[in-house]
Structures are given as structure tokens and as C-alpha cells.
Design a protein around this nucleic acid. Structure first.
Length: 399
RNA sequence: GGGCGUGUACCGAAGUGGUCAAACGGGACGGACUGUAAAUCCGUUGGCUCUGCCUUCGUUGGUUCGAAUCCAACCGCGCCCA
């Protein structure tokens, strides 16, 4: 349990892209104090995914060494509403939505972190921001210059390429940094895109006459598409509460990852030694993927769920079978066209799309592929029937 | 406040009076192949009561037999000047 400081830093290095400044972190670890490890989350969407899991795993590591995680829920910033992304004015979230999101956050984060009060403190930044007056805000703004803010890479890029930057976005780093001042963070965790914001926190703390936090950033996890950062809005994420199997389950999502991602996923999401997974990936990429899928499901669900998911996967995809569990739609027993049924089953968003899919040969009933002209036919469902479109299955049940 | 630009489908981007539901690329989705990988090939990518009809090219109103294309006003965005 009592690793030397060097050993601790070595453990951390697996998931840390940068530690700034490393000497400072070393000093904090040496002090023997119980450190406060800050991690901020915006409750704008209710899903925690594997991309978040990377810094969370590091936080968990700190917890196990006896330190305390401080989770900041950015309720105040969410309440203001972030209009970045020009054409989609994001609706301002209501207090209830934020509370609901925050609650599920804490639940989901609990899959990864220790949640007892000794190890976890949860704070909402509305606690201090809601009390600030304009003069306080101006004082905060005066801490930094425009040039300093524009030094941030993504601001600089947007500015250069003419994508607008709203003024409140410029002050986000300051707000986030102010959180660090208020909770006396010793260390702030984040993805590598947070480096700038986190360093602002360090500056603000020192400016306030407090010790500055050390900043640790983790690599960004690439999403299931294989090239963009995992994020909710890109739809390329694996949620920590996703079901183990099924069409949107973890097993399938992990199996469909590009091989090129295997090594990073093993490094960031498992604790297996490189000497073990590297040869595995090289020799048997498919086996490596199955092992990874089972590892992650065991971690976030259970070993039994992992076995079941594997069995299901082999049955459905390796042996082209039919899954045990699938969503059901109730449909009347009258003769009817198939397209509306496909829409009702959620496999297409319009009749036209459903008809196209039939014409493309993507649709089958009980394993019988439909002919392109079958969209004109009437079908009668007097017994349960398995409808398949692409990889997705739905059971049609007579009502 | 002034000048100059610009606004096309999920994104980028053609199209400057009819042959435009709108080229092309990316993405996405399907099919073949496979390891639900990659690569490759093929198809689809506004809606509908589907061999036809309806609605779309920032918004509204006009010109015209006919407009994404011309005119006007308005709105958004960018750059420059103040």
C-alpha cells in the first residue's frame, strides 16, 4: 500500500499526458497530507462515457492512496446556457433538469469512484457564483487579458478562422479556475483539452494568496468512429451505464472499434500490463477485442454479464443467430404495409426511409430477406415475428 | 453608424431564369466480403396515400408562363472603417 513517490508517479504516468508542474505534484505527495483532487463536470447531458472514465480512473487511484476527490458540478454555468454551436441555440436547462442530470452523474460516477464521504465531496459551483455581484465579476475578469485568453489553442483557431467566440465563452476558463480557488484544490484532473483552463485555476489560486494546484491531464479517448474525441454530441461514445449486450450494448460497440484503437483503450481503460496486451493485440486482434470488451463489462457491470454478453455475441454474430432479448413492438393483426411497422419499431425515421431500406435489401422477417418490391405488399402478423434491419433486431408482436 | 462580402440538404461546396429534390466531396446508413476491424466494391441519403404528387436553397414580399437563380425589404454572420 505504501508506494514510494516515484512508484506513485509511475502508476499515474500510464494515463497522464502531462503533469504541470511535476515537481509540484511530487512535493504535494511527499507532504503526506490528504490532498483534494478536483474534477469538474457540466451537468448539460446525463451521460458519463468511457472518455470521462479515463480521468475518473486516475481520481480513483488517488482515492485509494487516501486522498479526497472533489467533484464539481457546474450547475451555474449550465443554468446560463452555452450557446456555442451557432445554429442550435441550446435551450437553457431548467433547475429540475440540472438537478436530475447531476443526480445521475453522481450515480454513474459511483461506478468508478469511491463514494463514501471520506473519499468524495460533491460541490455545486452555484454555491459561490450565484452570490457574485457584477463588481465581483469585473474583478475576476480583470485577472486576465484578452491575449492571455486567446492563447488557448481552440480560441485561437476559432478566432483565426472566423468562427465566433461569444464573450461568456472567454470567461469560462476564469469561472472554472475560480472553482479551484473556492474549494482549495491541490490537484485538478481533466482531459488534455482542459489544460489551459486548469492552469488558469492555478494562477487564480496563487493570485489569491493560496498554493496553486498541480494540474494533471489525461489523453483524450478517441470514440467508436475511430478518429474523433469521444463525446456525447458526436454520438461516438460508450456510456458507463450502457447495457452489456444488445444492439447498443458495450460488447458490440467495443467489437466494432477499429483495431487501431486497441492499444490506447487497453492502456487507458484497463490496468493490465503492456507486456500482456501488446502481444495479444499483435497476435489475435479479435481475441484482444473480446478480452477488452469482457474486461470493461466486468468492471462496469459484472463478470456474469461479461460472460453472457460474449455468449450472446457469438450466437448472434459469429453464428448468425437471433438474440434472446430484443425490443418489441405491438402491431395490429390486420393486413398492413411493412414500412409503417418499421418506423414504429424505431428502425427508420420515415416511411420513405423504410421503403428505401426494403429496396436496398436491408430488411428481413424471421430470417427471410425481403425482395425490393415487397414494400408494396401487405403483411399480416398473427404470430411473433423477428424483424431485422441491418444489425438491429425488433420482435413484432400481434396486439 | 458606414463600406464590402456572405447565408444552399448532416457538414463542406457547385449551381446565377426552365432539362433542380438540386452536381461533387466528406459523413452517415444499407448490401457483398470479413473478425460487427481495416481495405475494397456496390447502393441509399427531404416527405407522402410513390412510375405520380407535395415541401425545400436565411425570412417576407415582388417581377415572370416559370425563380435556388432577377428585384426590394428584413434577419444572421464575417471582414474593414468609425
Amino acid at each position: 500500500m505504501s508506494l514510494s513517490i516515484d512508484e506513485q508517479l509511475n502508476v499515474l504516468s500510464r494515463r497522464c499526458e502531462r503533469i504541470v508542474p511535476e515537481a509540484d505534484l511530487r512535493k504535494k505527495l511527499q507532504s503526506g497530507r490528504k490532498l483534494r483532487i478536483k474534477l469538474g463536470m457540466d451537468p448539460t447531458a446525463p451521460d458519463v462515457h468511457l472518455g470521462h472514465a479515463v480521468p475518473l480512473k486516475v481520481v480513483r487511484q488517488f482515492q485509494e492512496w487516501g486522498h479526497k476527490a472533489v467533484l464539481i458540478i457546474g450547475d451555474y454555468t449550465a443554468r446560463v446556457g452555452d450557446p456555442s454551436g451557432r445554429n442550435t441555440t441550446r435551450p437553457v436547462l431548467t433547475g429540475e433538469q440540472i438537478d436530475a442530470n447531476a443526480k445521475t452523474y453522481v450515480e454513474q460516477v459511483g461506478k468508478i469512484l469511491l463514494t463514501d464521504p471520506e473519499h468524495l465531496e460533491i460541490r455545486y459551483n452555484g454555491e459561490w457564483f450565484s452570490k457574485m455581484g457584477l463588481s465581483d465579476v469585473i474583478k475576476l475578469l480583470a485577472k486576465k487579458t484578452v491575449a492571455q485568453m486567446l492563447a488557448r489553442e481552440d480560441f485561437a483557431n476559432r478566432y483565426k478562422s472566423g468562427v465566433d467566440i461569444r464573450l461568456h465563452e472567454l470567461i469560462y476558463p476564469l469561472m472554472q479556475g475560480y472553482d479551484s480557488v473556492m474549494i482549495d484544490a491541490d490537484v485538478e484532473m481533466g482531459g488534455s483539452d482542459q489544460l489551459f483552463n486548469n492552469l488558469v485555476g492555478r494562477d487564480l489560486q496563487e493570485d489569491a494568496g493560496k498554493p496553486g494546484q498541480a494540474v494533471i491531464v489525461t489523453p483524450l479517448l478517441v470514440g467508436t468512429d475511430g478518429h474523433m474525441k469521444m463525446s456525447k454530441s458526436k454520438g461516438n461514445y460508450i456510456g458507463v451505464t450502457d447495457p452489456p449486450s444488445g444492439q447498443d450494448g458495450m460488447f458490440g460497440k467495443i467489437m466494432s472499434l477499429p483495431d487501431s484503437l486497441m492499444e490506447v483503450y487497453y492502456t487507458l481503460l484497463t490496468d493490465l500490463p503492456a507486456t500482456e496486451y501488446k502481444p495479444l493485440i499483435a497476435q489475435d486482434p479479435r481475441g484482444a477485442k473480446i478480452r477488452l470488451a469482457k474486461y470493461i463489462i466486468t468492471w462496469l457491470h459484472s463478470a456474469e454479464a461479461a460472460d453472457a454478453a460474449e455468449a450472446e455475441f457469438i450466437k448472434v454474430f459469429s453464428n448468425k443467430g437471433v438474440p434472446d432479448e430484443m425490443p418489441e413492438v405491438q402491431v395490429s393483426t390486420d393486413a398492413q404495409k411493412l414500412a409503417p411497422v418499421i418506423v414504429k419499431a424505431g428502425l427508420a425515421s420515415s416511411n420513405s426511409e423504410a421503403i428505401r431500406k426494403i429496396k436496398e435489401g436491408a430488411v428481413s422477417l424471421d430470417g427471410q430477406k425481403l425482395a425490393p418490391t415487397d414494400f408494396q405488399k401487405d403483411f399480416t402478423f398473427d404470430k411473433p415475428t423477428v424483424l431485422k434491419l441491418g444489425r438491429k433486431f425488433v420482435r413484432i408482436v400481434p396486439a
